[in-house]
């Protein structure tokens, strides 16, 4: 068991790839927003890459370990300390029974991950331990962890001092400018050429009105192809309105003039167009950016996006570990 002393800003149990198979009833996958850092944290402590761990947003928690074990902290640098001593990130660290892990605000990045050998052992809900905050399901009683709670952990054995090689870690830009891959579609033909050029050629600022359901972006207005204005009335009369359809996770959903990237806890369907989709290999960048930071989008093909996902899968494995 891990005792929660301080909860941090929003620390939640997540597993990867999350709650799949229920998109047709409206259940999102949830899961870690930066699955690169998350999976490697698990690999460090000898877990399956998808085992349940903790995602810490902006400010990390303070946790007391009731029994000895092995942990790893990856992702955003939240200045982790064990009984007051700074610990190395991206490395497996042995903890003794009674020791306290204390984390603070994120100096770089936005989300840190804590993996524990054996994995967190909360009750799965619809096949996953991931927390879906807004519906209050999964994780610890459906929500972020709270002081006084005891987080169950399975028994596992890890080896201390295993490290993720420097070249296998995600690199966070120091100038707060992110280059994010996008694939055109499914509704790209609703946007005119000028609109596409403006989307790919402009800075987009991540709005503070963003959360695990959607990342809202501030930027220039969109312009539309004829298809968006000359259409059957059941679409709805605004140019961005379409007959309700399934949404890809990662879709850049154009609600009126506001683009919203639909992320891990996002809606499965709705009546706005999705001119572009962020492929899963770029999700870690969304997870590690903070409101106010700038996105530039870079178009890639379906095949390129699939190759990037393949490469990331290889990186999130034992091959990235040195001892």
């Amino acid at each position: 068991m891990i005792e929660v002393i301080k909860e941090g800003l929003e620390t939640s149990v997540q597993d990867w790839p999350g709650r799949l198979g229920y998109w047709n009833q409206g259940f999102p996958p949830s899961g870690p927003m930066d699955s690169w850092s998350f999976r490697l944290a698990n690999v460090l402590v000898g877990n399956d890459p998808g085992a349940a761990g903790l995602e810490c947003q902006y400010i990390g928690p303070t946790l007391k370990f009731q029994r000895a074990g092995m942990i790893a902290v990856t992702g955003a640098d939240m200045q982790a300390k064990l009984d007051g001593e700074a610990i190395q990130m991206w490395q497996s660290v042995a903890v003794a029974a009674g020791q306290t892990l204390e984390m603070s605000f994120a100096k770089t990045g936005a989300r840190a991950y804590i993996a524990v050998a054996g994995g967190i052992a909360t009750e799965p809900w619809l096949g996953s331990r991931s927390t879906f905050h807004k519906a209050g399901v999964g994780g610890m009683e459906g929500h972020a962890i709270k002081p006084g709670q005891l987080v169950p952990v399975s028994v596992g054995e890890g080896v201390a001092g295993r490290k993720v090689r420097d070249d296998a870690r995600p690199e966070f830009p120091s100038d707060k400018q992110w280059s994010i891959e996008v694939v055109r579609g499914p509704n790209d033909d609703w946007i005119d050429d000028a609109g596409h050029e403006r989307f790919l050629g402009s800075d987009w600022k991540l709005s503070s009105k963003s959360d695990r359901t959607g990342f809202r972006l501030d930027g220039p207005d969109w312009s539309f192809a004829e298809k968006a204005t000359d259409k059957a009335p059941e679409h709805g009369s605004e140019p961005s309105n379409i007959i309700d359809q399934g949404y890809p996770c990662g879709a850049i959903n154009l609600a009126g003039q506001t683009p919203i990237i639909l992320v891990n806890d996002g809606p499965s369907m709705g009546g706005f167009i999705n001119p572009y989709t962020v492929p899963r290999s770029a999700f870690w960048k969304l997870g590690q950016s903070k409101p106010g930071e700038i996105y530039r989008f870079k178009a890639v093909s379906v095949e390129e996006a699939q190759a990037l996902a393949h490469d990331l899968r290889e990186i999130c494995s034992e091959q990235s570990i040195s001892t």
């Binding site: 499914p186 059957a232 059941e234 359809q245 890809p248 962020v278 492929p279 899963r280 996006a305 990037l308």
Partner: peptide, 17 residues
């Protein structure tokens, strides 16, 4: 058959309800 990133396909049958 419309692509949605690296792992989705939207099969659209028509444009009315």
């Amino acid at each position: 058959f419309l692509p949605g990133g690296d792992r989705y396909m939207l099969v659209e049958f028509g444009n009315e309800m």
